[in-house]
Amino acid sequence: MNNSTIEKAPAGVIARLRSWASADPHVTRLAVVLVLLLVAFAVMKPKNFGNVATWQSMAVQFPEYGLMALGVMLTMIIGGIDLSVVAIANLASIASAVMMLSLAPKGSDAGIGYLAAFLAVPLCLVIGAIAGAFNGFLVAKIRIPAILVTLGTFELFTGIAIVLTAGKPLSGLPMQYSEVFAARVAGIPVPLIIFALAVVIVAVLMNRTAFGAKLYMLGSNEKAAAFSGLKTTSLTIRTYMTSGVLASAAGLVMLANYNSAKADYGSTYTLLAVLIVVLGGVNPNGGSGKLSGVVLGIVVLQVLSSFLNTFPNISNFYRPLIWGGVLLLVIVINQWYKPGGLSRFFQKRSAS
């Protein structure tokens, strides 16, 4: 390798970084924020930062709301939203818990316990798909705004879950379920593996299939998508169905982490999922957004949450305040950089 090649290498790397940064400013900003958070974490709390248990705990926690955020992302790309993901997760996990408790009550042998755990997975995912399809049907066929539909079904699904449990947690699940879904494979928690598989599947759907391209077309202009021959009703229903399946997968993770099921678990995850998607650069009006930004948003918020946990003086009661403030701040920043947004408004004000 000659000197000219050595001199050109850093310049080439810098050029690639610049092109990557200009191509997706949301991802760039999130990457910078993540690096700053990690540096602050390492400097201020070095013991926690260097503890393997801290990172394993993160890997167990964020797949719960991370899977929900993936579903919200898909619905937001088509110009909708899914505010029922937490209710779907709880309803699906409760139905799975009821089935496992009926098949493998306390005292059952291990074989029956593993059978019950195996059957719980497809049951949970099917319930999530049905709930998501119901949302999509109301949005696409009855033409009710997505925010109203999913707010209504949030209450509906939560009400069904409360009836099934009488408002009490369902515990005493077969230990074989936790042995599988709360285990670690080569030190990697199973919930993280489930989340990684979901990310790969969503990435393939969005980037390697016609389904992903149609999502962006529908979100950009629904009328134009319909005139171009897209089956918008079917596409909308399938999108909400996919969101329901991802939410039910989150329910499986929650069921393993808590070893119980209840109608109000993860009550703050709805706001968190929406915050992650907006933070990741997905346009709330539809038509744009990248999976990489959403995944980075999930990691950023989990690192921030774990960092805050190291300060005993910061109560968990402040979390909704922090998440709500961050959500509003991100929306304001996005509007500032949007062409014809807040920056132009302030320029007009100053000129007058």
Rank of each mutant, 00 (worst) to 15 (best):
W55D: 03
L123P: 00
P174I: 00
T239F: 10
L235I: 05
L255K: 00
Y216P: 02
S350R: 15
L321G: 15
K168Q: 15
T54S: 13
V278E: 09
I14C: 08
F195G: 07
I112G: 04
P10C: 12
Y65P: 03
S57F: 14
L296K: 06
G293H: 08
L272C: 09
A250E: 01
L123T: 00
N135C: 13
S108Q: 07
T236K: 12
N48A: 15
P122Y: 01
Q56M: 13
S228V: 07
T310I: 07
G280C: 03
P320H: 01
A31V: 10
F307G: 02
G111M: 10
T233V: 11
L70W: 04
F307H: 06
I194Y: 00
K8C: 07
G111W: 12
T236S: 10
V126S: 02
T28A: 15
A225N: 05
L34Y: 02
R344Y: 12
S352M: 15
G286S: 05
V86H: 01
A104W: 00
L329Y: 09
T242P: 01
A263I: 08
I188V: 15
A198L: 02
V330S: 05
A263W: 11
H26Q: 14
S220P: 02
F41W: 09
P189I: 07
A226M: 11
L37S: 06
I194D: 01
A129Q: 03
W336T: 14
P63Q: 03
L205S: 06
S306A: 14
D24Q: 12
T150R: 06
L156F: 15
P339G: 14
Y269F: 15
W336G: 04
K45F: 15
T310E: 09
A196R: 08
L173I: 00
T239Y: 12
T165S: 10
A120K: 00
I276E: 05
V190G: 00
A87P: 02
A53K: 08
Q347G: 13
N334F: 10
V163Y: 09
A104T: 02
F211W: 14
S57K: 10
